[in-house]
Measured scan of single mutants.
Amino acid sequence: GKELVLALYDYQEKSPREVTMKKGDILTLLNSTNKDWWKVEVKATANDKTYERQGFVPAAYVKKL
């Protein structure tokens, strides 16, 4: 199945390749080969529509579930 990670801290994206997350968010882990930056998929809701974004977050800010 898919691997999930838990956001340990809030993170505000600093570039278009990154994604914003809030502490407590559960994210889908896409790639953890880089030890510093993990690629995740974030589900977000805006205007009653759910959309998914993929991007990088600092590996130290998340932990595998």
Rank of each mutant, 00 (worst) to 15 (best):
G1E: 13
G1D: 11
G1N: 13
G1L: 12
G1C: 15
G1K: 13
G1P: 11
K2H: 11
K2V: 14
K2P: 13
E3D: 11
E3C: 15
L4G: 03
L4S: 07
L4D: 04
L4M: 11
L4T: 07
L4N: 06
V5K: 00
V5P: 00
V5H: 03
L6D: 00
L6M: 14
L6Q: 08
A7W: 02
A7G: 03
A7Y: 01
A7E: 00
L8H: 02
L8P: 00
Y9K: 14
Y9A: 10
Y9T: 07
D10P: 05
D10C: 06
D10N: 07
D10V: 02
Y11K: 00
Y11W: 10
Y11P: 01
Y11V: 00
Q12P: 05
Q12W: 11
Q12K: 13
E13I: 05
E13W: 05
E13G: 15
K14D: 06
K14L: 09
K14M: 10
S15M: 07
S15E: 07
P16K: 10
R17A: 11
R17H: 13
R17V: 10
R17M: 11
R17T: 12
E18K: 04
E18M: 04
E18G: 09
E18Q: 11
E18F: 06
E18S: 05
V19K: 01
T20W: 05
T20D: 03
K23P: 02
K23R: 09
K23H: 05
K23A: 13
K23Q: 07
K23N: 03
D25F: 04
D25K: 02
D25A: 07
D25W: 10
I26Q: 04
I26D: 00
I26S: 02
T28L: 14
T28M: 11
T28D: 05
T28P: 15
T28V: 15
L29Y: 03
L30F: 04
N31Y: 06
N31L: 07
N31A: 09
N31E: 13
N31G: 06
S32P: 05
S32W: 11
S32D: 15
T33I: 09
N34W: 06
N34G: 09
N34C: 10
N34M: 08
K35W: 06
K35D: 11
D36N: 12
D36Q: 14
W37F: 06
W37Y: 07
W37P: 01
W37M: 05
W37R: 02
W37L: 03
W38C: 05
W38Q: 00
W38I: 04
K39G: 05
K39N: 05
K39W: 14
K39E: 13
V40T: 00
V40S: 01
V40E: 00
E41T: 10
E41I: 12
E41Q: 12
E41K: 08
E41S: 14
V42W: 07
V42C: 10
V42A: 13
V42P: 06
V42Y: 11
K43T: 14
K43I: 15
K43W: 13
K43Y: 13
K43M: 14
A44K: 12
A44E: 14
T45C: 13
A46T: 13
A46S: 12
A46Y: 15
A46F: 14
A46W: 14
A46N: 13
N47S: 09
N47V: 08
N47M: 10
N47D: 12
N47E: 10
D48S: 09
K49A: 12
K49T: 12
T50C: 15
T50N: 11
T50P: 12
T50V: 13
T50I: 14
Y51M: 09
Y51F: 12
Y51N: 09
Y51V: 12
Y51C: 11
Y51G: 12
Y51R: 08
Y51Q: 09
E52V: 15
E52P: 14
E52M: 15
R53K: 11
R53D: 03
R53I: 08
Q54E: 08
Q54P: 04
G55V: 04
F56T: 02
V57K: 00
V57Q: 01
P58V: 02
P58I: 04
A59P: 04
A59W: 02
A59Q: 05
A60R: 14
A60M: 12
Y61R: 05
Y61K: 07
Y61V: 05
Y61P: 02
Y61A: 11
Y61Q: 05
Y61S: 09
Y61N: 04
V62T: 03
V62Q: 02
V62W: 00
K63G: 08
K64C: 08
K64T: 08
K64G: 05
K64N: 06
K64S: 08
L65C: 14
L65K: 03
L65M: 08
